[in-house]
């Protein structure tokens, strides 16, 4: 792996100005980097800020949301300062994104071929004919067998899994440096999920992309990710290589997530849960944001919160429990 990150996010803050008083700090001061060829998983419950992080990178935050601070660079080039015209050249070309809902992510009134070729015409300046041919090839690459027919079909004629393959074909069409997949398999059948994830892993290898995989499924994480970032309340609470995070889980929230997974080797009557729900982003508890649900909560957690601290060379945790170099009581 080279040392220049594909994506470098520094102190990114994306706030939603709901009304006069309430500001939802959906993404609050997060920093991370993704290196070429790496698969990084961003894990957390609904409402923890994963998708907003992804959309912030794409600069597709809608009103009343706004990126209020920080920096995002793609291949060492700052993109937050770009004009919207310049940003159009980055989207789909340098960074591509796949969404959660394949059923609604494709425009119902245009053919598959039209929707794939328009991105090639835009970024690669291909002619209509060349773009259409490339579209057929791309469909074959993502494992669609009747590609010549599918290009002339409409999204409603395809199944969810097929549509997600089309989305992947679109995403890889311009050889992006980074592919962001926002819960790409959540809406799919279990049997299709593995196929789609394997396909994405294949494509990642074949096109030398880095992959930011957003998920709440730790099973997926353990299989596909090199590194994991756990997000809670708009902040990263733990970051480590996958095996380390799964085996030496430090943050109480990460532990909670793991305990809520069924395990084959253990026979339990009831899976663990994390009590309560993610507090709304405009009403986080003062102090540590997880303090309202944490089983190990201490008095000082309610007063103030700590930073993401290094407890090992590649393991970072945001928790008072590990303040003194990671000795857990």
């Amino acid at each position: 792996m080279s040392n220049d990150p594909v994506l470098d996010v520094e102190q990114l803050k994306t706030y939603f100005y709901l009304d006069e008083e309430r500001v939802a700090k959906a993404v609050d001061d997060i920093s991370f980097s993704i290196y070429p060829g790496e698969t990084v998983a961003l894990v957390g419950e609904s409402g923890s800020g994963k998708s907003i992080t992804a959309l912030s990178i794409m600069q597709l935050i809608n009103k009343p949301g706004k990126i209020v601070g920080g920096s995002i660079s793609i291949a060492s080039e700052e993109i937050l300062t770009l004009s919207s015209k310049q940003m159009e050249k980055i989207r789909g070309n340098d960074i591509a994104m796949i969404f959660q809902e394949p059923m609604t992510a494709l425009n119902p009134v245009f053919t598959i071929g039209n929707q794939i070729s328009e991105i090639l015409r835009k970024h690669k300046k291909l002619s209509n004919k060349a773009a259409q041919e490339k579209a057929i090839n791309l469909l074959k690459t993502v494992g669609i067998s009747r590609a010549e027919e599918i290009v002339n079909e409409y999204p409603h004629q395809l199944s969810g899994g097929m549509r997600q393959r089309v989305m992947i074909a679109m995403a890889i069409s311009c050889d992006p440096k980074l592919l962001i997949a926002d819960e790409p398999t959540t809406a799919l059948d279990v049997t299709i999920q593995a196929q789609i994830l394997d396909l994405m892993a294949d494509m990642k290898e074949k096109f030398h992309m880095a992959l930011l995989l957003i998920t709440h499924d730790l099973g997926v994480v353990s299989e596909y990710a090199d590194r994991v970032m756990v997000m809670y309340g708009g902040q990263i609470v733990e970051e480590a290589p996958t095996s380390k995070l799964l085996e030496l889980t430090k943050h109480p929230y990460s532990q909670g997530l793991l305990e809520s997974l069924p395990k084959l080797e253990e026979d339990v009557d009831r899976l663990g849960t994390i009590k309560g729900t993610v507090p709304p982003a405009y009403d986080f508890p003062s102090g540590c944001r997880f303090s309202s649900r944490c089983p190990f909560v201490m008095e000082k957690c309610k007063q103030s919160s700590t930073d993401l601290k290094k407890i090992d060379q590649d393991h970072f945790v945001r928790c008072y429990l590990y303040e003194n170099g990671g000795s857990e009581e």
Partner: peptide, 17 residues
């Protein structure tokens, strides 16, 4: 507000398009 408009934007399509 629909998903496919977000997709089109994510593909880098211009505002006009």
């Amino acid at each position: 507000g629909s998903d496919y408009i977000r997709t089109a934007k994510a593909k880098g399509m211009s505002e006009r398009n």
